[in-house]
């Protein structure tokens, strides 16, 4: 069964239609790179799936469960919304770390708040928190930040901040991790740091959707590439199919400019 399925997703901002019927699905462990020029709707697609924008119509399924049905206007309780939200993790272009917390706290904040909802939280608080902190340390050491646990985001480079934000998303153990142009705010040197981390996650079979401008990287890491243009999916296939033998003129033009 598909771990993610997007059906006929539309999104308009006022009169501007940004998504015009997006369809795709992905399997567990798959890695999809979403390419397309600015304004093609890539980021909006990610934001709709992650509930940061309200889709105009369409459905999204996670693990077979319908988690978004734009035609259903019934108000979903906040707790249920959060449960659905936690299917996914999202890494932002501009990191969005919490500036007042140090690196470790940034990663443990959400899991600790979530742990409070355990029925036996009071008795097991110490044990639960210790587990969360160990897990956070482990995640941060995997991205090479073991010596930065006590630092604040403002003391880190952009690449380091982005690695913290990836760890922060992973700490909640999402089924799918989404990246919204994770390297666009970074210079080329730091970009490689992040790409290495994503490659590392790929080797661990993390299911990922990566919106990116790094075509070389997409070719190397992704199992599949989706090319978007003006709110539609123009190509959906293996890197070989999309990058070497694009079917569509628009894709060819885009690739020739980028490569």
């Amino acid at each position: 069964m598909a771990i993610l399925e997007v059906r006929d997703l539309y999104k308009s901002f006022g009169k501007t239609e940004v998504l015009k019927g997006i369809n795709f699905s992905m399997e567990k462990g798959e890695i999809i790179a979403v390419l397309g020029s600015s304004g093609s709707g890539k980021t909006t697609l990610l934001r709709c799936i992650n509930f940061l924008e309200t889709a105009t119509s369409g459905k999204v399924f996670a693990d077979g469960e319908c988690i978004l049905d734009a035609s259903d206007k019934k108000k979903i309780p906040a707790a249920e919304m959060r449960r659905r939200q936690l299917n996914f993790g999202l890494v932002f272009q501009s990191f969005n770390l919490f500036p007042q917390y140090n690196v470790l706290e940034n990663v443990t904040l959400a899991p600790k708040l979530l742990a409070r909802e355990n029925p036996d939280f009071k008795q097991r608080k110490r044990e639960l928190f210790a587990g969360i902190e160990d897990n956070a340390r482990e995640l941060l050491s995997r991205v090479g930040l073991s010596d930065k646990l006590d630092n604040y985001p403002c003391e880190l480079s952009g690449g380091q901040q982005q690695r913290v934000s990836i760890s922060r998303a992973l700490a909640l153990d999402p089924k799918i991790l989404f990246f919204d142009e994770p390297t666009s705010a970074l210079d080329p040197e730091l970009t490689n740091e992040i790409l290495k981390v994503i490659k590392d996650l790929a080797q661990k079979h993390m299911t990922m959707v990566i919106v990116t401008h790094e075509i070389e990287f997409a070719r190397n890491v992704a199992d599949r590439i989706i090319f978007m243009n003006e709110g539609k999916v123009l190509e959906d296939g293996t890197p070989e199919e999309v990058i070497e033998h694009p079917k569509n003129e628009r894709t060819k033009a885009f690739l020739s400019k980028m490569l």
């Binding site: 940061l52 959060r82 969005n96 919490f98 959400a110 708040l113 979530l114 909640l172």
Partner: peptide
């Protein structure tokens, strides 16, 4: 406060 702070909180499953 930048919008991104609210969005980061939301995707991390924090309540309002």
């Amino acid at each position: 406060i930048p919008k991104g702070q609210y969005e980061a909180g939301q995707v991390l499953g924090l309540t309002k």
